[in-house]
């Protein structure tokens, strides 16, 4: 399925957000996900299904002032 991941059209095989995190190898990272402009709590990753053309933002913390 094609989704827009961090602004880029991306092909993924994941069906939900838990699978997406695993597919991207981010299980150990402190991240947050926004799906179609709404933040998704980690407790809802497994039940949040990915749909064609979903806009997913996946963020982490970097150095900043």
């Amino acid at each position: 399925m094609q989704i827009q991941l961090n602004g880029e059209d991306t092909q993924v095989s994941a069906g939900n957000l838990t699978e997406l995190v695993v597919e991207l190898g981010l299980e150990q990272r402190m991240i947050a996900i926004e799906r179609n402009m709404e933040v998704v709590p980690k407790s809802e990753y497994a039940t949040t299904k990915l749909e064609e053309n979903d806009r997913i933002e996946l963020v982490h913390m970097i150095g900043g002032g």
Partner: peptide
């Protein structure tokens, strides 16, 4: 300590993270 919130670089995630 302040930190910034940015997109994870999916294609080049790097091994290490600030945290």
């Amino acid at each position: 300590i302040t930190v910034a919130v940015r997109r994870v670089n999916i294609t080049d995630m790097g091994k290490e993270n600030l945290l």
